[in-house]
Design a protein around this nucleic acid. Structure first.
Length: 498
RNA sequence: GGCCCCGUCGUCUAGCCUGGCUCAGGACACAUGCCUUUCACGCAUGCAACACGGGUUCGAAUCCCGUCGGGGUCACCA
């Protein structure tokens, strides 16, 4: 039997990293065993449907490289892959449940149930719907009046259910703790616990790997599988992703708070920052899963080869952006130069830092900048933070750097002398630049640091960055001299007080 | 509140099933030092955990019980 897994998002918004991780585990499991991974859109609740959410979800998976064998866009033999388009399947299944007496009509109103729920809440009791005893007359009247009804599953009392969860182990649950759940709404639309079972059956899903919050849903679903007379798939419940530095589950209500702390929770935010798909994939796989005591970096192929559910942790893992950032750095280090150029380009374009279409000269310059930046470039958007000054005309001084490196009486005269050196150096290349600046330091009896650092701030505006000679060379003689002049003017306008 | 799941350094985790090899290993982060032209990289060193309490045992992070803590669920959401 080939392994078939699925990820079934509801199109209610953006894909968050916890969801991506769950999908990843499904995908990895299927790929590891050479099976199939399917995508299904669980959109039975049209009220919560968000326009374009599906597109965002699919694009997200495409970006990170999680491909699906069946599902939206690619189709497949078990379609359609939107629950909203599978009503015939649900109707047929409901028919069988009605015929076998597993479901009954519930004419209760929302107001009536609200009263019950409130009472249960007050009594600190779990709310469980049980079949209302209606007299034959009431039943007949309801029917003749055409009152709307939902179809509920008649839960058998006094049974103990056991599920052999591949991550959590054996879990037992009493049917006494399951209320009669709604299977079909009065308007005929099916609910999750029912639709998902019907679909998993129809689609031949062998392993249901999903988020931990579905653990208690498993038991009503077990009853539906049974009522339909089907064998059970294997279940695996993946622990939730907790907020950084805590064991509390990430909450959609706290998104703003996370953002204020610089924590990104949605996939698209990482894409926008210029993270690498391989790095995020690597990080997400390691969040709650390990192969052995030491390995941290895994390629896609290695993940597929080594992933098993047995090694998924049964306790929650909190999102650690620092670790992700480190893994990102490891992957960026080995990314081919061409890919780095391509990755950085959109950011430069969007800020108008390079002309469009990109000229050969710009391309060569970007290449030189990336080489000079080296390991400092971790995510593609860093090009703006770290390399902006290479592409602007004017220099913008960082106040802290100015204070630290330029606010000394001796600096203006030195910069003037250095300007003269730059004016004459020939040829204007890396090796010669290094030679003449060394010579200047020696001649003036200064330490290299006292020459290099002020010159860096004067020409780049920054206190930190690539090697100075790289900067001087890429910037070019004219730009460097103009910027030194600009710096001198600034220092004159705001003389050193110390 | 009922039911269910979970509990090893700040974080991700190894070890737990099959007690001794572990006064608990690796990684991120942090600190210090080296390298050095700043930063990043790299290298070295350091800091730091078995939630708590009982029990079983010659011996427990590992087995059992209890307590506490965290989470999920109790929808005509998924």
């Amino acid at each position: 039997m080939t392994v078939r897994t699925r990820f079934a998002p509801s199109p209610t918004g953006f894909l968050h990293i916890g969801g991506v991780r769950t999908a990843l585990f499904n995908w990895l499991l299927a790929r590891h065993f050479g099976g199939q991974f399917l995508l299904r859109i669980d959109d039975t609740d049209q009220e919560r449907h968000v326009e374009d959410a599906v597109k965002g979800i699919l694009d997200g998976f495409r970006w990170i490289g999680i491909d699906w064998d069946e599902g939206p866009d690619v189709g497949g033999p078990n379609g359609p892959y939107y629950q909203s388009q599978r009503t015939a399947n649900y109707q047929a299944a409901v028919r069988r449940l009605i015929d076998s007496g597993h479901v009954y009509r519930d004419y209760s109103t929302e107001a009536e149930r609200a009263v019950e729920k409130a009472a249960a809440e007050r009594a600190k009791r779990a709310y469980r719907f049980r079949r209302l005893a209606l007299s034959p007359e009431e039943l007949a009247r309801n029917e003749s009046e055409g009152r709307p009804y939902a179809l509920r599953f008649q839960v058998p009392l006094g049974r103990t259910l056991v599920v052999h969860d591949l991550i959590k182990g054996d879990i037992t649950f009493s049917t006494d703790d399951i209320g009669d759940f709604v299977v079909v709404r009065p308007d005929g639309s099916p609910l999750y616990n029912f639709a998902s079972v019907v679909d998993d059956l129809a689609m031949g899903i062998t392993h249901v790997v999903r988020a931990e919050e579905h653990l208690s849903n498993t038991f009503p679903q077990l009853l539906v599988f049974e009522a339909l007379g089907s064998a059970l798939p294997a279940f695996a419940h993946v622990p939730y992703v907790a907020e950084p530095g805590s064991k509390a589950k990430m909450s959609k209500r706290k998104i703003q708070q996370y953002e204020d702390q610089g924590v990104l929770v949605y996939l698209h935010q990482y894409i926008e920052r210029g993270y690498l798909p391989d790095a995020l994939l690597n990080y997400l796989a390691r969040l709650g899963w390990s192969y052995d005591a030491t390995q941290e970096i895994f390629s896609r192929a290695e993940l597929i080869e080594k992933f098993t559910l047995e090694r998924v942790t049964s306790s929650p893992a909190s999102h650690d952006q620092d670790k992700l950032f480190w893994i990102e750095g490891e992957w960026m280090k080995v990314l081919p130069l061409e890919r780095k150029i391509a990755g950085v380009l959109p950011y430069l374009k969007s800020e108008g830092l390079v002309a469009e279409p990109v000229t050969d000269a710009d391309r060569a310059k970007i290449e030189a900048v990336i080489l000079a930046l080296g390991d400092r470039l971790k995510v593609f958007s860093d090009i703006l933070k770290l390399g902006r000054f290479f592409f602007t005309k004017e220099v913008v001084h960082d106040p802290d750097a100015v204070k630290r490196r330029l606010r000394k009486d001796t600096v203006p005269a030195m910069l003037a002398a250095l300007d003269a050196v730059l004016a004459e150096v020939e040829p204007y290349d890396l090796a010669t630049l290094e030679k003449v600046i060394h010579a200047y330091a020696e001649r003036s009896g200064r330490k290299m640091g006292d020459v290099v650092n002020p010159l860096r701030v004067a020409t780049t505006g920054q206190g930190v960055g690539p090697g100075l000679y790289d900067c001087l060379f890429i910037l070019g003689r004219e730009t460097c001299r103009t910027r030194i002049a600009q710096t001198l003017d600034m220092l004159k306008a705001e003389p050193t007080t110390a």
